[in-house]
Structures are given as structure tokens and as C-alpha cells.
Amino acid sequence: MATQSNPALQDAPQAGRRDFLYIATAAVGAVGVAGAVWPLINQLNPDASVLALASIEFDLSGIATGQSVTIKWRGLPVFVRNRTPEEVAAALAVPMSDLKDPQTDQERTKAGHEQWLIMIANCTHLGCIPVGESGEFGGWACPCHGSQFDTAGRIRKGPAPTNLVVPPYEFISDTLVQIG
């Protein structure tokens, strides 16, 4: 009837079976913990109501040449600009060697819809919204720290490191664009 301090560690013959049982139980327990923890982490991800607005459709028909609107997408402001032929020509004329973040105008627009420039309206420096049709390059100028962008939204001068970001989008028809 003697009870040792830890009898579980004694009587060796059964050790193999016991080890297996303990390891199996620990493994099953670990699966259970992981299964319980995952939903608690996953709930932090964007919920269904946020995801439902991750992709939006926007009708371009109301924007005349030379006009620009700012729309909201995923909580961010997005410029949609119907560029004039002069602006497009100016953007195409810029040599790559002049650019801090070299990108052609074609890379920033969709073939067949070159007049449409769609980009996230936050300056790539620290996030302010640049003012349109201003600055030395006829594009945008950021009021916060003086970054200047050309008519294709490319960084030309100032502290911003990269061009204004073009979000993923595609044309569903000539006047309807789906962003995101």
C-alpha cells in the first residue's frame, strides 16, 4: 500500500505502452488547443460586411474629359481621372531616365482606356491626399511635404519614394470599371 512520491515513473515494463498513450493524448490535446485558438485569431480578420465592399463597381459615364472624382474603396480615397489627350501625351513623352520610380504610362493604365487614370489618392510619402492639377508637372502636388506627381501620377520631385499606387481594377465595359 506504499505510495511513492511518483509511482508513475516506476515499474518499467509498461513504459512503452504508457509513453504511447501519453504522447497520443498530448497530440490530441494539442490539436484541440490549436482548433480552439484558430477561431480566436481568425475573428480578427476582416469580417463579411467589410469583405463585401472589398470590390466595388464604378460607373465612369458621368466624368467628362479633364474631370476627376474621388471615390471611396476599402476605406481609401481613390482618384478616377479622365485625362485630356494633352495630359496623356505629356505622360507618354517623359523619358524613363527622368523618373525616380520608372514606370511607363501604359503600365499604369489599361490598354484601350488610356485616358482613365485610377489610383489610390494617398501620397506614398506619409499618406496625405495630393491636390490635383497642380505642381510643376501638371499632375498632383502633395500639400504636406511637397511631393510632386506628373499626369500619370508618377513621383517627379519631393520626398515620396514611389509613384501613386494603382489599385487592381478592370473594365467590365467601356463605362463600367470594377475596382478590387
Binding site: 477561431p39 480566436l40 475573428q43 463579411a48 460586411s49
Partner: peptide, 10 residues
């Protein structure tokens, strides 16, 4: 319950 991931269960 409706929108949050796993929210109904939590």
C-alpha cells in the same frame, strides 16, 4: 453572429 469570422460560435 452574422458577419464576424466564427462570431456565431464565439
Amino acid at each position: 453572429r452574422r458577419d464576424v469570422n466564427g462570431g456565431r460560435i464565439i
